[in-house]
Amino acid sequence: MNESILVIGATGYLGRHLVAELHARGYHVRALARSRERAEGPGPFGSPSLAGLVDDWAVGDVTDPETTEGICDGADRVVSALGVTRQKADPWDIDFRANLAVLRDAERADIRSFCYVSVLHSETGTSLTVRAKTAFAEALRRSHVPHQLINPSGYFSDLTDLLTMARVGVSMHIGTGATRLSPIHGIDLAQFIVDRVPDAPGEWDVGGPDTLTYRQLENLAFSAVGKKARSIGIAPSLLGPAGWIADRVSPRIGNLTRFFSEGLVTDAVAPPTGTHHIADYFREQTNGTAA
Rank of each mutant, 00 (worst) to 15 (best):
T179L: 06
S49F: 11
L212G: 00
R230G: 01
W204G: 00
G46R: 12
P251E: 09
D161E: 11
N255T: 12
E3I: 03
I253Y: 14
L220I: 01
R215F: 00
T211V: 11
I174D: 01
H28S: 14
L103I: 02
V78T: 05
A109F: 06
D247A: 14
A31K: 07
E69I: 05
A31T: 05
D76K: 09
R86D: 14
N255S: 12
I8C: 07
T266R: 14
H144E: 12
V194F: 11
S143N: 05
G263H: 09
A132N: 04
I184G: 07
I71T: 01
K227F: 00
G26Q: 13
H147V: 01
I193S: 03
G15L: 08
L100F: 06
K227Y: 05
L239E: 01
T126H: 13
T160L: 15
W244G: 02
R215N: 06
A20V: 11
T129Y: 10
A235V: 04
L53F: 12
V170I: 12
A190S: 11
V225P: 01
P146R: 06
V130S: 11
D199Y: 07
V194T: 12
S113L: 02
V79Y: 07
S113M: 08
G125T: 03
R180F: 05
A98I: 05
P44A: 14
G240F: 13
Y13K: 07
D55C: 02
V54I: 10
R112T: 08
S261N: 09
T164L: 15
G177K: 04
T211H: 00
W92C: 00
L163P: 00
T266M: 12
V78F: 08
T129K: 04
I245P: 03
S80F: 10
I8E: 08
M172Y: 14
S47F: 08
G74M: 09
F282L: 09
L159M: 14
E3Q: 15
G60C: 08
A268L: 12
Y214R: 13
A81D: 02
R141Q: 09
D55Q: 10
T275V: 08
A58I: 12
T286R: 13
V19L: 11
T176I: 00
R38K: 15
G52A: 04
R196D: 04
I193R: 07
K227P: 00
M172R: 05
S47G: 07
I5K: 05
V29R: 06
D210P: 01
F96S: 01
A75E: 10
P183F: 00
P251R: 13
A178F: 01
G41A: 14
